[in-house]
C-alpha cells in the first residue's frame, strides 16, 4: 500500500510516498542520504540510529515512517552546524570520546537530548542519558567526560 507522509527532517519539509511500514532509518539513509544515522542492532537496543523526533530521542530503526506524519525529525546532520551541535562535536573531539566512531552520531544525539532538557546533569544523569547507546570501543568514560566538557564549555547554551 502506498501512503503519502509529510514530515520535516532537519527543518526541511519531506514527502514520503510508499509503504508506511518502511523504517524511518531507511528513509533517512537511503532516500535522504543522511548516512550519519547508523544501523547497529536494528532492534532499538543499541542507539546507533538515534534521532530526535518532536524533541524526544527515539531509535529510527523501529519507527515506521507512517508514524512520523507531521513530525519534526532532527538527525546528526541537522545539529552539527548549530551552536549546541558544534559544542558537542568539539567536546567529543577534544575529550577523545571517539574510537571507531560508529556509535558517536547516536551518542551525540543522546547527549543533545539530555543537555537540552537537563543543562546541568550529574555524572549519573549523563550515564543514564546515554544508557541506551552502546559503544564497543571506549568503555564510555571518555564519552561521559566529553559530555561534561560540553556542559562546561557550552554554559548558557544549554540553559
Amino acid at each position: 500500500m502506498v501512503s503519502r507522509i509529510e514530515f520535516s527532517v532537519n527543518g526541511r519539509k519531506t514527502v514520503f510516498s510508499g509503504n508506511p511500514l518502511t523504517r524511518l532509518i531507511d528513509v533517512l539513509r537511503e532516500d535522504l542520504s543522511l548516512t550519519g544515522v547508523k544501523e547497529g542492532c536494528g532492534e532499538g537496543e543499541c542507539g546507533a540510529c538515534s534521532v530526535i523526533k518532536d524533541g524526544r530521542l527515539v531509535t529510527s530503526c523501529i519507527i515506521p515512517v507512517g508514524a512520523v506524519n507531521g513530525s519534526e525529525i532532527l538527525t546528526i546532520e541537522g545539529i552539527r552546524d548549530t551552536d549546541k551541535g558544534r559544542c558537542l562535536v568539539d567536546a567529543f573531539a577534544e575529550g577523545g570520546a571517539v574510537q571507531c566512531g560508529f556509535c558517536i552520531p547516536g551518542m551525540v544525539m543522546a547527549a543533545y537530548a539530555l543537555l537540552s532538557s537537563n543543562p546541568n546533569p550529574s555524572e549519573e544523569d549523563i550515564r543514564r542519558g546515554i544508557s541506551g547507546n552502546i559503544c564497543r570501543c571506549t568503555g564510555y568514560d571518555l564519552i561521559v567526560e566529553s559530555i561534561k566538557l560540553a556542559v562546561r564549555k557550552g554554559g548558557d547554551l544549554w540553559a
Binding site: 509503504n19 511500514l21 518502511t22 523504517r23 531507511d26 537511503e30 544501523e39 536494528g42 532492534e43 532499538g44 530503526c61 523501529i62 519507527i63 515506521p64 508514524a67
Partner: peptide
Amino acid sequence: GTDMMVQSKRGIGLA
C-alpha cells in the same frame, strides 16, 4: 513499534 517492529523485522533496507 517497540515490540511489533522488532518481532517482524526483515533486515537493513527492508520494511
